[in-house]
Design a protein around this nucleic acid. Structure first.
Lengths: 146, 146
DNA sequence: TGCATAATGAGAAATCTTATCAATAAGGGG
DNA sequence: CCCCTTATTGATAAGATTTCTCATTATGCA
């Protein structure tokens, strides 16, 4: 939250509105849930009825620009938004269950070495990465199930 | 192409239509380009004018089900489709340049060990994965540029 | 060849996201 | 503390991508 204020203050002509604070609040309270824009809108509406969906989209865009939020796509047609803590720069991956659809997180720096390898071999300066594993979670265990 | 026929024949009640063959043809001829549905439609229309966009979508869905095509999302709003060769099961990653937008490929089995680690630590059976690196390609070299 | 049924094309419809625009409010200067 | 500039908002229209509908066509098998 602090980060948000600071980043907003130091980033030019952006203003801290109640709407933006509320949206940030929701993101903080559901930081493990990969909410879609519409889900966020519904949750914010509980505290702040009357807020427009467009405002949610605009705020999410802004937060993404400020690098406070990561836009992810799991292939279900809608984008989802993850809060992005500064202390864990970008090592946040997803386990997507093909059976029940649940999405778990892996918070590990799995790819540090890979980033270096790729950078060297392809002359590519890696800034961030995104990694998704598809498979079957403990509950759904085997591909034949379900 | 052979794979396509076989897979189609052995997969129940699917039929091999000229439209499907044409779409597959295009995918084969542009296997490095990450085409969108509309781009594929445009290309197929050159040989087969009159083909419907819906057919392209339907065929791509089918090919995805048959595991012949991978649906990827680079965050530009539209899905893109990659042919998926059997001899390289799923080790095909992307380097996305934040400056010029170009998408390069890495064909390496970078994650074999990781898949095992993740599987063990989270009780998750990994079937596939998707990895994207964001950064700056050799031509755009530095984040400050452009 | 004939038949059952999968597949197609055209367009409507659904979904998600962005743009428009008048009205409102944030925040700095006096 | 009030004014003024200008960013922001809400409502809605517009845009874009993908899916659905349905009558028509064509595939593959007997």
């Amino acid at each position: 939250m602090q980060q948000f204020y600071e980043r907003l203050a130091t980033s030019g002509q952006h203003r801290l509105t109640p709407q933006r604070a509320d949206i940030l609040q929701v993101l903080l309270q559901h930081s493990e849930e990969h909410l879609s824009a519409e889900e966020i809108h519904a949750l914010v509406s509980e505290t702040n009825p009357g807020i427009g969906l467009a405002t949610v989209y605009r705020t999410l865009d802004l937060l993404e620009q400020l690098n406070l939020v990561l836009k992810v796509n799991f292939g279900d047609g809608k984008s989802r938004y993850d809060l992005r803590e500064d202390d864990e720069p970008h090592h946040h991956h997803h386990l997507i269950c093909l059976s029940c659809g649940r999405i778990a997180e892996v918070r590990q720096d799995l790819l540090h070495n890979l980033e270096e390898t790729v950078g060297r071999e392809h002359g590519f300066t890696v800034v961030d990465h995104r990694l998704q594993f598809f498979g079957y979670c403990a509950d759904c265990s085997s591909p034949t199930e379900n």
